[in-house]
Design a binder for these strands. Structure first.
Lengths: 235, 235
DNA sequence: GAGTGGTCTAGACCACGAG
DNA sequence: TCGTGGTCTAGACCACTCA
């Protein structure tokens, strides 16, 4: 192939990566300060910071302004199961914030409703312990709004027996500033963005969800049975 | 919410982004040299380069060593359809490279075959004009190897009528160095990585595919019919 | 206030591409 | 050879955290 250019930053990043992998640097441990590391590797602080940026983009370290650089603990991977079957994981806490709003722009198109049509938004953040794991914005036409009590069902998506079709669009991108801060990830760490649209038998959109999952600890799995799914002519 | 820190690099990136969006900088056009841009914005070249790095991560520009920075033309988005139904796009050229190899490590586990079991690899790169669009590594047990002639069917995946189940795992990550160069994208541009495993009625793995799609121009779409898919108890 | 990371500068030197 | 981007340096100054 073409490359193999061992720039200083990569050499340093490789070394630190190994130290993390072998456990010489433990989870949640603070790295030496940047000037210290720079002195140790005999490079300028600028170069050292470039090395750290590489690790940050891989999700290996977390930089905290004024405190230091920390080894990110390897959390359990999340698996998002497509097709409307969302696996409930008892180890995750979910915080839900409900808001009423009116359809406009993207949302209006996504839910195929008229402008200013009343919607209910569920903003869900799942945590494992202290670490945020995933972010979901779920939108439902207000008249279908499941009268969900937080104590009865922590996952509004389960409460949709009317959906007969779920269409999910998956993309990879870098997080917005807001997503990066709520998920506590680097803005250079790729995320999986899933747009899920559920329709009922009449073709009406029953629910639209925008999910954002950190790429370093999330997969999405989809299973299909091609022979039994010859009937695929819809948009 | 928290942020709104207009650092110089972001201000400059915003300005250039606008110039690209409004067409003042046209597709494939070369930007002024970095020293020129730095002078224009009255910043150091280091800062200017940080601004360009932001645009690069968004897929807006392409840096070519020794030549300059170029506005990346907005290509048509690719849509990968899940579930084994791969839409054939006549506007794309496909280059296929066939190799025989032996199963080991990841591949062995993915195809659920014994070690050193003979496999055939299809390395496919699709292009739209000069621009590489997607990268696929397809693995098939050698005895199932479709005796594909390049002139008869450019897409070996179509030639699998035996698959009864397709399981696709989707992740978001940054590309490897090799993927970045073949796809001609920045190593900071997120990619969609799809692992597709097809099995036949007996449960044997008929084909495994590793797809890599540039995140800025690819989506993957999955459609499910929850009510008709109650039978979901397999691994 | 002491210590941390975040941003920026001015300039040296190297590597690539094209004539 | 010349102009381009790529890497690195040494150091200034700012912003955040915590005692």
């Amino acid at each position: 192939m073409t490359h193999a250019v061992p720039s200083l930053r990569h050499t340093i990043a490789d070394d630190l990566r190994t130290q993390i992998a072998t456990g010489r640097l433990k989870a949640d441990e603070r790295l030496p300060s940047e000037p210290q590391l720079a002195a140790h590797y005999k490079v300028s602080t600028a170069t050292l910071r470039l090395a750290l940026a590489l690790l940050q983009a891989e999700g290996l370290i977390e930089k905290i302004h004024g405190k230091g650089n920390f080894v990110r603990p390897p959390l359990r991977r999340i698996t998002y199961a497509g097709g409307g079957r969302t696996p409930f994981d008892p180890a995750l806490q979910v915080s839900i914030c409900t808001t009423n709003l009116r359809a406009r722009g993207h949302l209006r198109a996504l839910l195929r409703v008229s402008s200013n049509s009343p919607l209910t938004e569920f903003l869900c953040v799942t945590h494992e312990g202290k670490s945020p794991h995933s972010l979901a914005r779920i939108y439902v036409p207000r008249d279908l709004a499941p009268t969900i009590q937080l104590n009865s069902s922590p996952r509004p998506r389960e409460a949709e027996p009317t959906a007969t079709k779920v269409r999910e669009t998956v993309t990879a991108r870098l997080p917005t500033q807001e997503e990066a801060t709520t998920l506590r990830i680097s803005s250079t760490l790729a995320v999986l963005a899933i747009t899920s649209v559920a329709t009922d038998a009449t073709g009406r959109v029953v629910e639209a969800a925008l999910l954002v999952l950190p790429g370093d600890r999330a997969d999405a799995v989809f299973t299909a049975h091609p022979t039994t799914e010859e009937r695929e002519t819809e948009g």
